[in-house]
């Protein structure tokens, strides 16, 4: 390990830390979640209302409880992927649950936010 090794690694870690700080600091209390499949909004649920919802024609089941959303069931195979049911509870803006196999994303939005962001 030479000096430039440490410079490169240090720079990468500094960037990661700065980005992480920026994301954490701008998080706010969420008001609702939007479910998208292939980037298209398919459902919207308030975080203040408890309930269980079947998503995407039954591929996933989302539960909302005490202002937090989490995936309780999914039909995906597990090999090599982090299952959406293991991604925990989300309640703050920009937090999300990603179910890669079903191209499904659940994202938290704040009360004052508008439409879903789309790629392309």
């Amino acid at each position: 390990m030479k000096k430039r090794d440490f410079i490169l690694i240090g720079t990468i870690l500094a960037i990661a830390l700065l980005l992480w700080g920026a994301i954490e600091l701008t998080k706010e209390e969420g008001a609702y979640v939007i479910v998208t499949v292939e980037g298209k909004e398919v459902a919207k649920y308030s975080l203040s209302q408890d309930g269980e919802y079947e998503l995407n024609g039954g591929t996933n089941i989302l539960k909302i409880e005490n202002g937090e959303a989490f995936m309780i069931w999914a039909n995906c195979p597990t090999m090599g992927q982090t299952r959406c049911t293991h991604q925990g509870k989300i309640s703050k803006t920009t937090e999300k649950i990603v179910c890669q196999i079903n191209q499904l994303v659940v994202t938290v939005y704040g009360a004052d936010e508008g439409d879903v962001e789309l790629v392309g």
Binding site: L19, E38, T94, V98, V119
Partner: peptide, 23 residues
């Protein structure tokens, strides 16, 4: 790949954690 696949740009917020875990 995940952004293109799910068509959700917001996934980029995972970048800092993945930079750290990759390191």
């Amino acid at each position: 790949a995940a952004i293109l696949w799910t068509q959700t740009a917001g996934i980029v917020t995972y970048l800092p954690v993945l930079l750290l875990s990759g390191t």
